[in-house]
């Protein structure tokens, strides 16, 4: 038996249409492929764009800060930007599946296709388009990111401490001068196990940990930062919508990682002032207060 007994059995050259039929028909057939693919592509692109625009806000929760809404906007814009490219890949794949001519003769290989080894126009335009897209994504991302780096002259300081397996918050005594000239005063340092923030007041979170790494993730504020032991991680935002949400731990931290969450609220600044004035006593929600359930 020879090792090459099988070699070269399949010499079916592509039945070049140019050789058999008029060049005009070849072009027409080629156009037919292009047109078929374009239909599928257009359909998928429109679907992708619509999904990006209208599905994203449904899928994601209502956000309480500009940073949170930036995340939603980014998903929207990136989906719309990616839709034509993703749709093109899908369209060619789907079209080639629909167009496969050998479904009924699966036991033997079909006749070879045209020996296309590349197409400078296709490759070139693909490269140009994908590079432009990347430049756009980067531009978008950096612009958004830069707009979030604005440091307000004065911000409410909230010290966040993560530890196994609880978040605690402390509001040091401070007077914050708000952009409008008003002031917000925390007369006496307050510790709390829930996070309450006044609306439209810039906040600076100073996040640290007592033991291992935790992930401080006030979900609907669209910001996130690890609580590292021995490090002060600074996060800034300005909550601008009232509402309740959860702070969740986003970094596995051991046994009760799943239980490491706190209830957070954005409240009117008058309510915040009244709440903070009670000192420590008002901070902790006692079980008596939740009789009958909060929900």
């Amino acid at each position: 038996m020879s090792s090459n007994h099988n070699h070269g059995i399949h010499h079916a050259t592509y039945q070049s249409i140019d050789e058999e039929v008029a060049p005009g028909l070849h072009k027409q057939l080629h156009r037919q492929h292009v047109r078929g693919t374009l239909y599928v592509w257009a359909l998928l692109t429109v679907g992708g764009i619509l999904a990006g625009l209208y599905l994203t806000p449904i899928l994601m929760p209502h956000m309480n800060s500009p940073e949170g809404r930036a995340a939603i906007e980014t998903v929207k814009v990136f989906t719309v930007a990616a839709a034509p490219v993703a749709a093109l890949v899908c369209a060619v794949a789907i079209y080639s599946l629909i167009n496969s001519r050998h479904r009924s003769h699966l036991d033997s290989p079909p006749v070879d296709g045209p020996p296309l080894r590349g197409n400078a126009l296709a490759s070139g335009s693909w490269l140009v388009v994908s590079t432009l897209l990347v430049v756009f994504l980067l531009f978008w991302g950096l612009t958004e990111w830069a707009s979030q780096q604005v440091v307000h002259a004065d911000a409410l300081q909230v010290n966040v401490t993560g530890q196994q397996w609880l978040w605690t918050y402390s509001y040091p005594a401070q007077t914050v001068i708000l952009p409008g000239g008003k002031t917000l005063t925390v007369p006496k340092a307050v510790d709390a196990t829930t996070l309450d923030l006044p609306i439209n007041v810039p906040v600076q979170f100073n996040v640290t940990s007592k033991d291992v790494t935790h992930g401080f993730w006030p979900t609907q504020l669209g910001i996130q930062g690890d609580a590292n032991p021995g490090v002060n991680d600074v996060l800034r935002t300005t909550p601008d919508h009232l509402g309740k949400f959860q702070v969740r731990c986003s970094q596995i931290c051991g046994l009760y990682h799943a239980y490491m969450y706190t209830q957070a609220s954005v409240i009117p600044d008058s309510a915040f002032t009244a709440w903070i004035a009670q000192g420590d006593a008002g901070r902790v929600l006692t079980s008596a207060k939740i009789t009958g359930g909060v929900r």
């Binding site: 093109l88 890949v89 794949a93 599946l97 496969s100 050998h102």
Partner: peptide
């Protein structure tokens, strides 16, 4: 991937 598939005979 799609260039290789394009107008191929696609033996599924």
């Amino acid at each position: 991937a799609i260039g290789t598939m394009w107008r191929g005979s696609n033996w599924v």
